[in-house]
Simulated scan of single mutants.
Amino acid sequence: MTGRIQQFTELHQPGQPLVLYNIWDAGSAQATVRAGAKAVATGSLSVAGAQGFDDGEKLPFDFALTNARHIVSAVDVPVTVDLETGYGDSAAAVGANAQQMKDVGVAGLNLEDQDFSAGGLRDVSAQADRIKVAADTGLFINARTDLFIQTPIPDHDGALAQKALERCQAYADAGAGSFFVPFAISEKLIGDICAKAKLPINVMMMPDSPSTLRLAELGVARISYGPGPWMAAMSAFEAEALKIFES
């Protein structure tokens, strides 16, 4: 395990969450590090949007790879990249793409279990195969499940948590380093998952989420902000542009 990957791995401590204020390019990465970030993480929607593409692997992989290289060269902290579903129809393709990301110096990847072509979620065993080949490169894999995104929030109950935990176990067995549950916002739900999961838990900060302090108390190990920072930056930019052109 290389130094940056080891450093990044050690930052995942339940109860002392690593806060990742997601970035999209080298400049935003540097700004986040100046603010005190211990690591930086891209968000796929933000990276794609900054280049004029939609989310969902519409940004060409070569663009994503070049962007990752620039970010790694611009900061002296670990960099993790949101690779969506891995940019590959097969596990082998995902593994090859993960290796290219490692070769440019990233420490970790996000891999999600939705299936863009078929819709819904990928079969657990098939997703575990994709995670395994990515983890076999030595990178820290943050295995994301979209169970909570694809289910309306009022229906986030114990049965759904159990399904998430089953995926967590399979992804842990495949070599994942952490488990990402975006759109899980209930304290009870998050607490139950943290208590029972075989991996450190990553949540996404949302308007109705518990505070950072409360998430730490629940046992969360990693807090992400997703596309929020990029959206806020673009909103501020557009507001200033409107003032200029309206005058």
Score class of each variant (00 low, 15 high):
residue 55 D to L: 00
residue 66 T to Q: 12
residue 21 Y to N: 14
residue 218 L to F: 02
residue 191 G to L: 04
residue 147 L to D: 09
residue 63 F to M: 08
residue 188 K to C: 11
residue 228 G to P: 00
residue 176 A to T: 12
residue 6 Q to E: 14
residue 82 D to R: 05
residue 155 D to H: 14
residue 125 S to N: 15
residue 191 G to R: 07
residue 46 S to Y: 04
residue 216 A to V: 00
residue 246 E to A: 15
residue 111 L to P: 02
residue 120 G to L: 14
residue 72 V to N: 03
residue 13 Q to F: 07
residue 80 T to H: 13
residue 23 I to H: 06
residue 114 Q to I: 14
residue 199 L to D: 07
residue 231 M to E: 07
residue 111 L to Y: 01
residue 51 Q to T: 04
residue 245 F to A: 05
residue 114 Q to A: 14
residue 98 A to S: 03
residue 28 S to P: 00
residue 19 V to H: 00
residue 166 E to I: 14
residue 125 S to D: 15
residue 38 K to M: 09
residue 237 F to C: 05
residue 111 L to F: 04
residue 240 E to A: 15
residue 69 R to N: 02
residue 47 V to P: 09
residue 21 Y to S: 14
residue 57 E to Y: 07
residue 53 F to M: 01
residue 242 L to E: 14
residue 208 D to H: 08
residue 65 L to F: 11
residue 173 D to A: 14
residue 156 H to G: 03
residue 25 D to W: 09
residue 63 F to H: 14
residue 190 I to G: 00
residue 176 A to R: 12
residue 244 I to L: 12
residue 63 F to I: 09
residue 81 V to Y: 11
residue 141 I to T: 04
residue 243 K to P: 07
residue 2 T to N: 13
residue 30 Q to N: 11
residue 37 A to I: 00
residue 140 F to K: 05
residue 29 A to L: 09
residue 61 F to M: 11
residue 68 A to M: 09
residue 128 A to V: 09
residue 206 M to S: 12
residue 85 T to N: 10
residue 196 K to L: 14
residue 7 Q to D: 13
residue 66 T to K: 07
residue 224 S to F: 02
residue 32 T to W: 12
residue 169 Q to S: 12
residue 212 T to G: 10
residue 165 L to R: 11
residue 49 G to F: 06
residue 227 P to I: 02
residue 143 A to M: 12
